[in-house]
C-alpha cells in the first residue's frame, strides 16, 4: 500500500540557512576530530594494502597487512585475456559475438581458417584479435556473450598507463599472454549433459512438449485427429 506522506516545511526550514549551518557543523566536527584528534582514520588503502581471504567480519583490525592479496573483489572486471584449449591453441572461434554486443565497438576480430581442425577444435579461429582498452567501457558484456569461455576479464589487473594510444590496443598475443586453460570441456559436455540439463531447467522444457492433451512424448502429432 502506497502511503502519501506530506512533508510540512516551516518558514524556518524553508530558509535552509539553519540546515546549512547544522550540516556545516557536522562536517566541521568530523574535520576537526580527524585533523586534531589522536584516533587514526579507519580506511582501506585501495590497491596498496592487503587483506586475507575471506575478510573477517568480527575483528576488522586483524587483517591489516597480514597476507598478500590485492584488495579487489572476486568479480572485479580487469584487463581482458583470451583463454586456451587443452592443446594450447586459442579457444576463440572468431564468432564475433563479443564484437557484436560490444556497446563501445572496441573489439576487432579477423577470422582465419585452420588447415587441419581436430575433433577438439573448429576450423575458424582469430587471426587478429584486438581490444582497444581505451575505448572499452568495462561493461563485461563481451565475456557474457562469449559462447566458448574464450574471453575473460578476471585478471584482477588495471590497464597500466601507456605512452601512446596505440599501446592500449591489446593484440592477440598480449591477450593470450595471461591465458589459462578453461574449465569448460573441449568437445562439449559429453553423454551426461541431458541429466544435468533436466535437473536445472527441465521444468521450463516441459512447456514445449506437445503433451498438453494427455499424449505422451512419443505421440507424433499428425497421427492425431485434427482438433476442431
Amino acid at each position: 500500500m502506497a502511503k502519501i506522506v506530506t512533508i510540512k516545511r516551516t518558514f524556518w526550514d524553508q530558509l535552509y540557512l539553519p540546515g546549512v549551518v547544522r550540516g556545516l557543523g557536522i562536517t566541521l566536527r568530523h574535520f576537526f576530530v580527524n585533523t586534531f584528534g589522536s584516533k587514526e582514520i579507519e580506511t582501506l588503502r585501495y590497491g596498496e594494502w592487503d587483506r586475507p581471504d575471506p575478510p573477517p567480519s568480527s575483528d576488522p583490525d586483524a587483517w591489516r597487512g597480514k597476507q598478500k592479496q590485492r584488495l579487489r573483489p572476486e568479480r572485479f572486471r580487469g584487463r581482458h585475456r583470451l583463454m586456451k584449449r587443452d592443446d594450447g591453441s586459442v579457444r576463440c572461434t572468431a564468432c564475433m559475438m563479443c564484437a557484436t554486443i560490444c556497446p563501445a565497438n572496441c573489439i576487432h576480430i579477423e577470422a582465419g581458417e585452420r588447415e587441419s581442425p581436430t575433433s577438439r577444435s573448429v576450423e575458424k579461429f582469430p587471426l587478429r584479435f584486438e581490444i582497444d582498452e581505451l575505448v572499452c567501457v568495462v561493461c563485461g558484456l563481451c565475456v557474457e556473450a562469449c559462447p566458448c569461455d574464450a574471453l575473460r576479464m578476471d585478471t584482477q589487473e588495471h590497464l597500466p598507463p601507456v605512452e601512446h594510444r596505440r599501446d592500449a590496443v591489446l593484440d592477440r598475443e598480449q591477450l593470450l599472454s595471461r591465458a589459462g586453460v578453461s574449465i569448460a570441456r573441449d568437445g562439449g559436455d559429453g553423454e551426461d549433459w541431458r541429466e544435468r540439463y533436466d535437473a536445472t531447467i527441465g521444468e521450463a522444457r516441459q512447456i514445449y512438449r506437445p503433451d498438453k492433451q494427455g499424449h505422451d512424448d512419443a505421440t507424433i502429432g499428425y497421427r492425431r485427429k485434427p482438433s476442431s
Binding site: 562536517t27 566541521l28 568530523h30 574535520f31 580527524n34 585533523t35 582514520i41 579507519e42 580506511t43 588503502r45
Partner: peptide
C-alpha cells in the same frame, strides 16, 4: 574533504 569524510 577527506578529513570531513573520515578518509585520508
Amino acid at each position: 574533504s577527506a578529513m570531513m569524510q573520515d578518509r585520508i
